[in-house]
């Protein structure tokens, strides 16, 4: 696909997203907001999985904690301030990512997969088994956050159109930030780590620090998504930290095509539309989702992005190079 066709497609897509709430049905405006939130969430995980090569199965921890922070911070009878609550939620998610990250980033490969999942589940049990924030039933946010500037209220998150545009703004901002990040020296380092971490170390990069910072950035972005999700539905429960959500978002990243900017967008749209469709067919819709996932794993290793026509100067990330001295394969598979 030529760059021109691509730009036109992007612009048309963007225009559609911009005018959609003016013409679209209320239900779909909300549904699209939900999808856009998931693109932020998936984009944040893509930073880890697609670019740095760290497969996290516990990313919902940061999504959920941000939601819980908003819920606990919101007063029952008044609306929380948008800026303060957003800052608290995202900061809290980043802090949690720093804490968990400093432990799990010490490992790699399959250890990393297991450890991220285990820590996220720990958080799940913390909120599920204790009385903090309503236990297994969760907690309600009775009044959605609002933005107040000197008595003027430009944004009310209870208004679904306001909410849609806020989410659209944040998802575009997230994509632009990730794009900028990837072209920076930091971005070059994380991609280098994905391809050959041992060589990066030999070149003098303290890879632990870079992986940890990347983990924190991804956690903060996931926190942004979690904050928005909590404000959209006004309810937060332990499922928001659970491994089904971690699994789903990982599926979005892989389905869409890892290590590409459009991948998470594609993945979030396709998985959520598919699930929506399946749910209308049968109560056992996860059977169909599972079948699709299995088929993609077997036949579309590069995800749906692999189906798109290739653009000149292939921008998708190459596979991790195998072998090489001291590759992670040797670390991953000791003797029995």
């Amino acid at each position: 696909m030529s760059t021109r066709v691509r730009s036109i497609a992007l612009l048309v897509g963007l225009a559609l997203l911009l005018v959609f709430p003016l013409v679209g049905d209320r239900f779909y405006v909300q549904f699209f907001s939900k999808i856009l939130i998931m693109t932020i969430f998936a984009g944040s995980l893509n930073l880890l999985v697609g670019y740095t090569g760290l497969i996290s199965l516990g990313h919902a921890a940061f999504f959920g904690i941000a939601g819980y922070i908003l819920a606990l911070y919101s007063p029952d009878t008044a609306a929380a301030g948008l800026l303060t609550s957003l800052l608290l939620s995202v900061g809290g998610a980043a802090l949690l990512a720093l804490l968990i990250g400093s432990l799990v980033v010490r490992t790699g490969g399959i250890f990393f997969i297991m450890a991220t999942l285990a820590f996220a589940e720990m958080l799940f049990y913390l909120f599920h088994d204790t009385a903090i924030a309503g236990g297994s039933d969760g907690i309600y946010i009775y009044q959605r956050p609002t933005l107040m500037i000197a008595g003027w209220q430009p944004l009310d998150l209870a208004n679904i159109v306001h909410f849609y545009y806020l989410v659209l703004f944040f998802s575009l901002a997230a994509i632009v930030s990730i794009h900028t990040l990837l072209r920076s020296p930091f971005g070059k380092v994380i991609v280098g780590i994905r391809v050959n971490e041992q060589r990066m170390r030999a070149l003098g990069f303290h890879t632990y620090r870079y992986k940890l910072v990347c983990f924190v950035i991804a956690g903060a972005l996931a926190g942004l998504a979690g904050y928005l999700a909590a404000s959209q539905f006004g309810v937060v429960n332990p499922e928001m930290l659970g491994w089904h959500l971690s699994g789903s978002v990982l599926m979005m990243v892989i389905l869409g095509g890892m290590g590409t900017l459009v991948g998470p967008v594609l993945g979030a749209f396709s998985l959520m539309m598919l699930e929506e469709g399946f749910q209308s067919i049968t109560k056992h819709w996860q059977l169909l989702t599972g079948a699709v996932i299995v088929l993609v794993a077997l036949y579309l290793p590069r995800g749906f992005a692999g189906l798109l026509p290739k653009r000149t100067g292939n921008k998708t990330l190459p596979p991790r190079s195998k072998g090489g001295t001291g590759s992670s394969a040797a670390v991953d598979r000791p003797y029995v």
């Binding site: 020296p185 930091f186 070059k188 380092v189 280098g192 391809v195 050959n196 041992q198 060589r199 990066m200 030999a202 070149l203 003098g204 990069f205 620090r209 870079y210 910072v213 990330l317 190459p318 596979p319 190079s321 090489g324 001295t325």
Partner: peptide, 24 residues
């Protein structure tokens, strides 16, 4: 033991980038 998918330039550029005081 190099970055096979990267260009020659990017391989050496990464190596040279390691001499920045930090890549953060």
């Amino acid at each position: 033991n190099v970055f096979l998918p990267f260009t020659v330039f990017e391989n050496c550029r990464l190596a040279a980038q390691s001499r920045l005081d930090t890549s953060m």
